[in-house]
Write a protein that binds this DNA or RNA. Structure first.
Lengths: 335, 335
DNA sequence: CTGAAAGCGCTTACAG
DNA sequence: CTGAAAGCGCTTACAG
């Protein structure tokens, strides 16, 4: 394993000069010595030691992606949920493109985040699904840039807390997505709408979708809240649909819509979309396979934006709400 | 940020002694000083710097999980495929339980693996889906323990290469899974069997399942090879089933089986399992929702075994082939 | 049971 | 444009 020091000795220069070449500080090194060192680097397969770099105070290249969804049991597999898996995959791709490295971790507390940051002198954090309630604590105990995904923080909150570090918020127009779904269903002639989610905390993604649903529907329908989703909820949906008390359902996830469809297919003779229209959320690949109408979100764009914020951009504060888009397919009656 | 040195000064001992306490070398420290230091650690929220630890030559706590599937295009999202996502999730959980940290990375070459190892002085590597052809090169350029998942390496190969590092092989009985699927289908009265996969390289998981399928079937059926899976393949399956030239299909993934089922549901009047039996592979959660007969594998067990091999076990060489299990559900005719 | 010394492989000011 | 010095926060032999 060749070190920077050895490189310097072989080139007949100081370690400093080698360091300057390696870090592209071209203004500080003559072209001649630079070329000499660069030749040596490729020839000897020099690989920098990131631990030494971080320790010496250089910019760390480590980004931690943290799952902090509140409603998760310890045994549950947070990173295998389709949306999370897609996000991780997109983040990995973006982090790699930005010449950084990605640590993946599920945490149960703010303390663990602070610990992780100190353990590795992180360059930045991507925190997914954290409830806004923890915001103040995180911003106080963390001093590197943070990108929040699916934590809807307002400019006012941020101003109140006045974070010392750079903070990026990458939210999704959850309410707008639910509204678009309701609009599509009403346009297709739906009279009795329902809403189906996994679980509703006061602050989570699903509650914002529910809020949008309620707002869009106002007094024209009788919402069905089913929590958590499962056989009982599906049975309720089936019974109501069979008794003409329900003819359209907005769900908070493609997975949920698919589960419902599978249940109805196995246990009832209800026809989709004739007897019951169903809208998913996320537009996962399998939604297309199943010809499912759904609310699409651009996960790749959010991942790229978050990584760009942490690695390239110099914006001190960034608040974004990404738009969603209704994808009309075969599980809803056409307008 | 409090350092080990500060801790030592406050306790009135040398840094060495603090280090010994932090690393549980209880035989080298008196109970009294140990307690004093431990109190200080919690009181001052001391957090060790992993970069410094690694640099100084202590065991690194970083494990890199590497995706090295050959057939992947650069744009494809390797970590969002259901099996990979489940594996990542299980690995994260196991790594965390073992008090280690997990780096996630997709690579296109052996060089990148070696680079990663040197960059971070890794404690170990988990390499997923690598073709055995790269084995010699990896073992030559890497000098930390490696756990291979879904790379079927034999004891003979390993003996020939005589790796200097610890090597663990965590394979799956892919052929056995396909055989079990064929047996189930034949027991259910199937006469014309087919096989459906995404793509078949000479060495991948799918080719081993295909080999098992062929072996089990011998001359009694006419295999249908469709690569890559897609509308054309599904259309072929549909046409053959409608013309009574196909009454059962073994697939290499639940996702594929689900796609096929969705296609048949949308485009044909074929009934499953009456007209066509379908067997999935993996037993992902949605297979249960869809009442899909499938070949189950225990991803959690493999992840745990791999992480245990890298972090706890002292076994120099470990070769395992995990058994699979056929889960009988509603998409196959009952025996 | 305890410690003084040296070093891991880098980078940061600071001089020239 | 180049370098000697000091240091990042730890751990490893080695003495006592």
């Amino acid at each position: 394993m060749v070190t920077l020091k050895e490189l310097a000795q072989l080139a007949g220069v100081s370690t400093m000069t080698v360091s300057n070449v390696l870090n592209q500080r071209t203004d500080k090194v003559s072209p001649a010595t630079r070329e000499k060192i660069e030749a040596l680097v490729t020839q000897l397969h020099y690989v920098p030691n990131q631990n030494a770099r971080s320790l010496a105070g250089a910019d760390s290249l480590l980004i931690a992606v943290i799952d902090y969804t509140e409603t998760v049991e310890d045994t549950q597999l947070v990173f295998s949920a389709p949306f999370m898996a897609a996000l991780i995959s997109e983040l990995e791709s973006a982090v790699r493109a930005a010449h950084h490295f990605m640590l993946v971790r599920h945490v149960n507390s703010v303390e663990e985040i602070a610990l992780l940051q100190q353990n590795w002198q992180l360059a930045g954090l991507v925190i997914v699904g954290m409830a806004p309630a923890y915001l103040a604590k995180v911003l106080a105990s963390v001093h590197v840039p943070v990108a929040f995904i699916d934590t809807p923080i307002t400019a006012i909150e941020l101003k109140t807390l006045a974070p010392k570090q750079r903070v990026g918020v990458f939210a999704l127009d959850d309410a707008g997505g639910a509204k678009a779904a309701v609009a599509e269903l009403l346009a297709g002639g739906a009279k009795h709408l329902g809403f189906l989610g996994y679980s509703f905390t006061a602050t989570g993604v699903e509650s914002r979708r529910l809020a949008g649903y309620r707002e869009a529907l106002q007094a024209s329908g009788e919402p069905v809240y089913v929590l958590p989703a499962g056989e009982a909820a599906f049975a309720t949906v089936a019974w109501r649909a069979e008794h003409h008390q329900l003819d359209a359902v907005v769900t908070t996830a493609d997975t949920l819509a698919a589960q419902l469809m599978a249940y109805l297919h196995a246990h009832t003779r209800l026809k989709i979309p004739q007897d019951l229209s169903i809208v998913g959320f996320d537009d996962q690949p399998f939604a297309a396979w199943m010809e499912m109408t759904t609310v699409a979100q651009d996960t790749a764009a959010r991942a790229l934006a978050a990584v760009d914020f942490l690695t390239v951009s110099k914006t001190p504060l960034l608040l974004t709400t990404q738009p969603v888009k209704l994808i009309r397919r075969g599980t809803t009656r056409q307008p």
